[in-house]
Nucleic acid binder design. Structure first.
Lengths: 271, 271
DNA sequence: GGGTATTTGTCCGTATGTATT
DNA sequence: AAATACATACGGACAAATACC
């Protein structure tokens, strides 16, 4: 038995897109035109559209039409940095296409002023800090941009004890210019000996979808990177949770000796 | 203006799920029952279902009903290993829940015999090897399992010159027991000085969806990890492309000194 | 194994609302 | 204001998968 009709229509359009017959940004025929081309009802054509939308191949714009999605030059974040520094907190970001900048395509992210909150460490967020439930932590939440486009949402958690020990800037609603890790080293001699990142993918919540301007049908997932930082006694003192849309970000991990070239050419989905 | 009706229905059901009113694996009312509860048409109820399905909250089973998705203990792959070894090719994998094994929750993946092909390095896959277009490469493709469940699809590319220089096993349809990286070191003195991983997320192709038994509506994306390995002259000699479903996998990256504990343990009574 | 009821999947038609040009 | 195009919502019909007797 053949596939359902909406799948056949979707596969036919997919083939047209991947063969280059329909290029990035091109407009598809309207739903009514497709209804005639494939001799199906408009609802069936729309089912095919939804199948293609889920796969990120097309997008619809009410009042305008349906379009092949444009290609995005992904941002590349290198997760392996100097353990004595923050890591991705102030690190550079590379752009794969490197069209706009002559060489290297390096960018610096900018951050909003942090929203600082004092919270109880419930089961909700900060198990990695290994403080008991009910202990007080400081959370510092920031919105991060590259070239004025939303790039990531980031929240760092610190035990309140650090502020009491002299790191008062943790409680201030200002960016810490030299970076929080360097500040903690200077101020109270806390050395970051290493960190562990865990990388997961999930659907965005409503706030994230709004900030990143993601379509509200939830088809674009987000990376969640949780960085637990340890001092030289192996004790965790910082948890940073960063969220990035998966459609315009990728990560790089360097182990051992790796030549300096910033990134490798793009991967391609195989048929 | 209020949200569309299908969104209101979806949000109401989402709240019931996230509040625990409906637990993992529980069955939802049938579409006809929901149609009466919300005084909507069956198609509108189904639109609400689709919204929840896209977000991974529920799943439908034809002939049975609609269910809250069960919780999955994710596999954790550590990307930062010994640069002189393969990395994740033979490395252990950790399971977060660690319920089934007493301690640590460590698992070893098993691999199918490789499918070995000789290919021209076209634009398709292996730009990272920095061989000219038209150069011949060996590809070794494997299916990898953990506890007999499909875990990843992996393809490694090597310049054909390595086989000519004495590493003949690269052309054989057998697993290389000691690992390809160790084999290349022993046989032709090729030392892996380091590697770079790039991590992206994309929709699965049909073969991947079939192997991983992913729903064919494409809502579950896959990780694509591309590992380029370099010798001690900084020359790439291996590209390994691994694909993992995002719904049951996560990655860890260790930088600097990180305490040994494999993953963040769930708070458990010591007994 | 067969038959039947239940439940979701596909497909159709139509009407009306909303966003854009 | 009008035309166009997609979004939402309704209704109905039949098919396919599953469970149960």
């Amino acid at each position: 038995m053949p596939d359902p009709m909406y799948r056949q229509i979707a596969e036919d359009l997919r083939q047209k897109i991947e063969s280059g017959d329909l290029g990035h940004g091109d407009q598809l025929p309207t739903e009514l035109e497709l209804r005639e081309q494939y001799d199906a009802s408009r609802n069936t054509v729309r089912d095919a559209m939804k199948w293609l939308i889920t796969r990120g191949l097309i997008e619809t714009r009410p009042g305008q039409g349906t379009f092949v999605v444009g290609k995005i030059d992904p941002y590349v974040t290198i997760l392996t940095g100097d353990p004595a520094k923050g890591g991705d907190e102030e690190g550079p970001v590379y752009v794969k296409g490197l069209r706009e900048l002559g060489q290297g395509g390096q960018r610096m992210p900018t951050s909003s002023a942090p929203r600082v909150e004092i919270q109880k460490a419930g089961g909700a967020g900060a198990e990695e800090l290994q403080v008991g439930s009910g202990t007080t932590v400081v959370s510092r939440h920031q919105q991060r941009y590259i070239d004025d486009t939303p790039w990531s949402l980031q929240t760092s958690f610190y035990p309140i004890a650090l502020a009491a020990q002299g790191a008062g800037k943790l409680l201030e609603v200002d960016n810490i210019n030299q970076g929080a890790v360097e500040y903690l080293r200077q101020e109270i001699g806390l050395k970051q000996a290493g960190y562990r990142d865990t990388i997961t993918v999930r659907a965005p919540n409503t706030g994230e979808a709004a900030f990143f301007k993601l379509p509200d049908d939830g088809r674009v997932a987000v990376f969640e990177v949780r960085r637990t930082a340890f001092d030289d006694h192996g004790k965790p003192f910082r948890l940073t949770v960063s969220v990035y849309p998966t459609d315009r970000n990728q990560f790089a991990v360097d182990v051992g000796e790796v030549p300096p070239q910033p990134v490798t050419p793009e991967p391609k989905p195989s048929g």
